[in-house]
């Protein structure tokens, strides 16, 4: 156990170092080109009536990295996610995944292409067992065709392979003991784990997590964080939406900030929160400006008083 964890630590640093190196000399501007993008988005617009929910000019996601998508409530992060994964149709714009154009592609084909998402409100399939949830994630199953389903001999072999893979994943996510329980009987955090494990059954290249920590009890947070980092170690790319800045700082290699539907800034996690554009987006551009005339007068008086005090000090010397 102990040797294991040290091993992962060294591996982590290697992959992490590679990811960080890729971002090293990048500008902090929105839409900055990345050395090896897996996902390239251009001019995606989504309007709901008069409200422009998403208007992203250009953004690229670096392969093999963990990229965080942050922004205040209503910034359009989830809507943007829905556009990219085919759960909602964009009004205009295009995006490519591994160079393949993906606009207008229905959700199930997006997943088959290797871009798999999870949901903000967990979607455990309650009245299926944990194991059945996992098996469902596997792709190209022979037994999922109507006529072949009637002949178990045609799909039983593949089913056994799938089960084995599912068992490995469940062990990794510490859900093995729950394999025959209904998914609806799991706790909120365990459902998040199950949803992530199920997404991995698809064998995706890009994992998109919509608020993976929402509603998870703090004891499970560390383990979930570890699993997200683990995805990068296995060569996957992760894009996630999150509100918890501690988590963003802890695991992400790069942060993209959205506000009012647009990408307003990008940068490494340790400096992004001090970027004035980000502070403005979260707190408002005038957050330290006075609110009223009298307040303004008060501030002026204070400043004058301070100045006078300083002058007095100077003269006394």
């Amino acid at each position: 156990m102990h040797a294991d964890s040290t091993n992962t630590v060294t591996a982590t640093t290697e992959r992490k170092a590679a990811a960080v190196a890729a971002f090293k000399d990048l500008a902090r501007d929105p839409g900055v080109p990345k050395p090896d993008p897996i996902l390239v988005v251009d001019k995606v617009v989504r309007r709901f009536g008069g409200l422009t929910a998403v208007e992203v000019e250009h953004v690229e996601i670096q392969r093999g990295s963990i990229t965080a998508l942050i922004g205040p409530n209503g910034a359009g992060k989830t809507t943007f996610f829905n556009q990219l994964t085919g759960f909602d149709t964009a009004d205009s714009g295009e995006w490519t995944f591994n160079g393949r154009p993906m606009n207008g592609v229905p959700a199930h084909k997006v997943a088959r292409a290797g871009m798999v998402r999870t949901f903000q409100l967990t979607k455990a399939l309650s009245r299926l067992t944990v194991m059945e949830n996992m098996r469902l994630g596997a792709q190209r199953q022979k037994g999922e065709s109507f006529f072949r389903a009637l002949l178990p001999n045609l799909w039983r072999g593949q089913e056994d392979e799938i089960t084995e893979r599912a068992e490995d994943l469940l062990t990794r996510f510490k859900l093995a003991a729950k394999r025959d329980d209904f998914a609806g009987a799991l706790s909120g955090g365990q459902r998040k784990l199950l949803e992530m494990a199920r997404a991995l059954m698809v064998q995706p290249e890009l994992v998109m997590l919509d608020e993976p920590m929402a509603g998870v009890n703090p004891a499970l947070t560390q383990s979930l964080l570890g699993h997200v980092k683990d995805l990068r170690e296995q060569g996957m790319t992760v894009l996630f939406v999150e509100h918890d800045m501690d988590m963003v700082r802890d695991i992400s290699d790069w942060v993209i900030v959205m506000a009012q539907g647009a990408v307003i800034a990008e940068g490494p996690p340790d400096t992004i929160m001090s970027d004035p554009r980000v502070i403005d987006a979260y707190l408002g551009a005038h957050h330290d400006a006075p609110l009223s005339e009298t307040e303004l007068q008060e501030q002026l008086h204070e400043a004058e008083a301070e100045l006078e005090a300083e002058i007095e000090e100077e003269t006394q010397k």
Binding site: H108, E144, P152
Partner: peptide, 29 residues
Amino acid sequence: YLLMKSPWGRVLKAIREDEDAVRALGKNV
């Protein structure tokens, strides 16, 4: 009986629970 024991039936039952989740796993709901 045969269908509902099979992966085909599993997709059906999953659709009953939450069709968006099934879509996100690459099935043509």
